[in-house]
Design a protein around this nucleic acid. Structure first.
Lengths: 233, 233
DNA sequence: ACCTGAACACCGTTCAAGT
DNA sequence: ACCTGAACACCGTTCAAGT
């Protein structure tokens, strides 16, 4: 914490990683408006424009932020049922994204073409192929799973006020309150559903939905399997 | 187009709807950065702070924008298979959101609790109940369908550069180009999948994924049906 | 190459004042 | 109540200059 005042000149005590770490901390604690270039620079005790030595623009910092978070998603070990492996990967990805709600919006604001995004996509395709899906089915299945995970996380995170990282119990409680304010006479089913939904929002609801999606894919995979066998005959 | 210069004073020629329409046009043609309070005000030829007579802050304008777009989603008529009705509703919602890509980010940046959002949610619950799903199953199924539609649209729209409203063919071509740049030696499956994916992105892929989700729900619904019958015995 | 101070063209929002 | 001009505290980004 040495309060060193720096004159202009080469230092290179700063790293891309340090900047991204500072940006992530700001995003987590203060929401998107706290993750400005100027505040990031202040956090690493540097002039605002010094950031542009390391990143061409703010979009590049945001891409690095997404990659930073995706880097910590490991994936699943080979072997075993492909559906279980898919669940493991999806749950792991969800946990990481829920821990950094601000990053979810960044993921959906541009193409997911960074190295770690591609690595996870490749991992998923690999896993599906190992489960016996032909390449075409695996490609569509991987896309569907990506849609499910990102959609579920985005909706889960949408209610979270920026800068707050409440526990799952707190998020569920907050949702319960929000849904209980729905006028029951105009939206009776929505109001009635609020009680059941609130209890199942979160990891449990996520796993349930994921199971439904995988059930839907299983039928497709079987069909493809039959078609493949038919071709072999 | 009379270039009337206005002195301060009550006019009330301006409406909330006019402001929202102007904001939507700016968002569609220029992306999120074009939909600033100042540019919206300029579009309706008014001083920037005049907007605050109609909306408390920018977030309120954004909520109105979401409602404006959701208002045009009709839903499906009663009768017929509930799965077909769900497809109709989902496809209708997708078409409306794809036409206004900038609104998708706004939808995912806060709770979807506006009147039209609630109306569509209620419509979906109604449709599922008419199909024989018990309230608890319908609530979870509705949430899953919401996740799928919003996730699919968000991913589809993520690549679209702000301000461009390319045709579906153009978006498919753009995605093909983007995916063809994936290094094939490090991500072989992703590179291989690019060819198949590119052809199926868009409305066709959307319907396919929706069918998978509905297939997954069908198994669940049957199970619930059996449980309900068992209870009646 | 790396950093600074200063400036530019923007933001959202507030305030006092005019009708 | 509705609108204006002016101002405030911010942005992202660029530029010329220093080491």
């Amino acid at each position: 914490m040495a309060e060193t005042r720096h004159k202009p000149g080469p230092r290179r005590t700063l790293t891309e990683a340090e900047i991204v770490d500072a940006a992530l901390a700001l995003l987590d604690t203060g929401g998107p408006q706290a993750a400005s270039i100027r505040r990031i620079a202040a956090a690493v005790t540097v002039a605002p424009n010094a950031v542009y030595t390391y990143f061409p623009d703010k979009a590049a910092v945001e891409r690095a932020l997404v990659e930073r978070v995706l880097a910590e998603v490991t994936g699943s070990e080979p072997g075993g049922d492909w559906r279980e492996r898919a669940v493991t990967l999806a749950v792991d990805l969800r946990r990481q994204l829920i821990a950094h709600p601000g990053v979810v919006a960044l993921m959906l604001s541009g193409p997911l073409d960074g190295p770690h995004a591609l690595r996870l996509g490749e991992h998923l395709l690999e896993l599906l192929a190992a489960g016996g899906l032909d390449p075409a089915s695996a490609a569509r299945a991987a896309y569907l799973l990506k849609v499910y995970v990102l959609g579920a996380v985005a909706l889960e995170v949408a209610d979270v006020p920026p800068g707050m990282l409440p526990s799952e119990a707190e998020r569920i409680a907050a949702r319960r309150v929000a849904l209980s304010e729905v006028p029951a006479q105009t939206f009776p089913r929505t109001a009635a559903a609020s009680g059941m939904m609130a209890a199942s929002v979160g990891a449990e609801q996520f796993r349930w939905g994921l199971r439904r999606v995988l059930d839907g894919l299983r039928a497709e995979a079987k069909l493809d399997g039959l078609q493949a066998e038919a071709k072999l005959d």
